[in-house]
């Protein structure tokens, strides 16, 4: 197979968008279930619980971001999509941190959000703290995003 490189690279991009997106879907989903319960009791909390529900949504965006940077780098979106197998494999590897960390961190962040939605339901004045707790989980998704971005940009400059 001559084109193995591009296959591997696109697999990487797809996996990043796929896994991180799935994670966020689960996270935002369970957040929404908890949020609707709170709203049924107290509709005025909508704004607050909506923000908490959305917090695990960022991983999906990061996954999209990685997928998009990869696609631009390998020339699928305009350019010359012809890269070596080694480079393709590297792109795949570079996408994995975001894919895997994104998947698990979004689910766990969703669960933290659920707990914090419960917190806001009982103590609406503690919203500031409730928002920070899920954001702590996201740190690791951000670190993974960083590694993925730096790797992908770095691979572009290599001549292998």
């Amino acid at each position: 197979m001559d084109n193995l490189g591009i296959v591997l690279a696109i697999t990487g991009a797809a996996v990043a968008a796929l896994a991180a997106g799935c994670g966020s879907a689960v996270g935002v989903g369970i957040g929404g279930e908890a949020a609707s319960g709170v709203i049924s009791e107290d509709p005025s909390q909508f704004g607050k619980v909506l923000i908490l529900q959305l917090l695990p949504g960022t991983q999906g965006i990061y996954g999209l971001l990685i997928a998009f940077i990869t696609l631009t780098q390998i020339g699928v979106l305009g350019g010359d999509p012809n890269i070596s197998t080694a480079k393709g494999a590297m792109y795949l590897a570079a996408c994995l941190p975001m894919a895997i960390v994104g998947l698990f961190s979004a689910i766990k962040q969703g669960r933290t959000s659920v707990a914090c939605i419960g917190l806001v339901a009982k103590r609406p004045d503690q919203f500031g703290k409730a928002m920070i707790l899920p954001a702590m989980v996201e740190t690791y998704a951000i670190l993974a995003l960083l590694v993925s971005i730096l790797s992908i940009v770095g691979i572009g400059g290599m001549s292998i």
């Binding site: 971001l65 998009f68 995003l145 960083l146 971005i149």
Partner: peptide, 16 residues
Amino acid sequence: SRLLALGLATGVIGTV
């Protein structure tokens, strides 16, 4: 490093 990551996220998604 989140300053970079989130800044890039805004810019790149806008580009997309």
